[in-house]
Write a protein that binds this DNA or RNA. Structure first.
Length: 300
DNA sequence: AGGATGCTCAAAGGACCAGA
DNA sequence: TCTGGTCCTTTGAGCATCCT
């Protein structure tokens, strides 16, 4: 082999985790270019990141790399991007979010089988932001317009309207959206959010940031001069300071992952409850269908 | 407008090395 | 010898640009 083996340090691993949380798995080039991580990951290529993330995911699944290689589906032609992201992070970052899904993403074994269209799986709040941004309506967009936009762009579930209303309400309550005369527009976001408090910050469409779960007294807007000051500070960082910042990012990322894993466990429990409820409902329907006389049904 | 071409990026699989 | 970790190569999708 050409290059000598370079063992991944804890710092690099943490930077990778933080990068995946920030940009998503599969965005290896983006992570490498991110000044927040490039200082730590400068020795790594995008392929290295991908390989390391693959290893880390394999370990998390409890499979050895050889086991996984054997079990791996034989090279489906270019499974769409975001796939690994959705597999690896769906129980981490996205676990507490509504998902708009075009096709079944995984089967019961969490094994991807069906090639998924590019825009197949997205979070509803991201869609709402995307709709508002794309529609560019003065004063914001109303619910109907947003719904129409999303339905045109994505496959929407049957109870989509209800989900949308709930989500709009939630986002407005959280201060992420501003509602004026039935129109919604995006609330201004802090330029340099405290990521310890907003660890699951996500990048929307490479341009706009979404900050889930903003605590009431948790936001602070920065003025332009403050932003300039922050930028200047970053530029003047010594390697040691940059390393310290990276280490801090690592801690934050790990805390975020732990949090997300907890949320995922809760989601799984909720799913199990829902399955039980569904089974009861199905049994009830079956019982009722078994009765030939409709009047009897009503009385029953 | 739309087809051809080239570039970039990511996924996947295999090769290789080191340690248990 | 086996297994895990890292590196390398191949393949294909997406995108931008150029040309007809």
């Amino acid at each position: 082999m050409g290059a000598p083996k370079q063992k991944w340090t804890q710092e690099e691993e943490a930077a990778l985790k933080a990068g995946v949380i920030k940009h998503g798995a599969g965005k290896w080039r983006t992570i490498l270019k991110d000044p927040e991580f490039s200082g730590v990951l400068y020795l790594r290529s995008n392929v290295d990141l991908k390989d390391k993330w693959r290893n880390m995911s394999v370990m998390a699944n409890g499979w050895g790399s050889r086991d996984k290689a054997r079990l791996a589906v034989k090279r489906v032609p270019q499974v769409p991007k975001q796939d690994e992201n959705s597999i690896a992070l769906s129980t981490v970052v996205h676990s507490d979010e509504d998902i708009v899904d075009a096709k079944p993403l995984v089967d019961s074994n969490d094994t991807p089988k069906v090639p998924i269209p590019k825009r197949s799986i997205v979070r509803l709040d991201n869609l709402i932001f995307e709709a508002i941004v794309s529609l560019k309506e003065p004063g914001g967009s109303n619910k109907t317009t947003i719904a129409t936009y999303i339905e045109e762009q994505y496959w929407a579930p049957t109870d989509f309207k209800r989900l949308l209303s709930a989500k709009l309400k939630y986002l407005t309550a959280n201060g992420k959206l501003i509602k004026v005369k039935r129109k919604y527009r995006i609330a201004p976001t802090p330029a340099f959010p405290d990521r310890r408090r907003n660890p699951s910050m996500l990048l929307l469409d490479g341009r706009q940031r979404v900050f889930p779960k903003v605590e009431k007294d948790d936001t602070h807007m920065l003025t332009k001069s403050q932003i300039d000051l922050e930028l200047e500070k970053m530029r003047n960082m010594t390697p040691q300071e940059a390393a310290a910042a990276a280490a801090q990012a690592v801690d934050e990322a790990e805390a975020a992952i732990a949090e997300a894993e907890e949320a995922a466990r809760e989601a799984e429990a909720a799913e199990a409850d829902a399955e039980v409820a569904q089974a009861f409902a199905a049994a009830a329907v079956k019982t009722l269908k078994g009765r030939s006389n409709p009047k009897m049904m009503i009385r029953a």
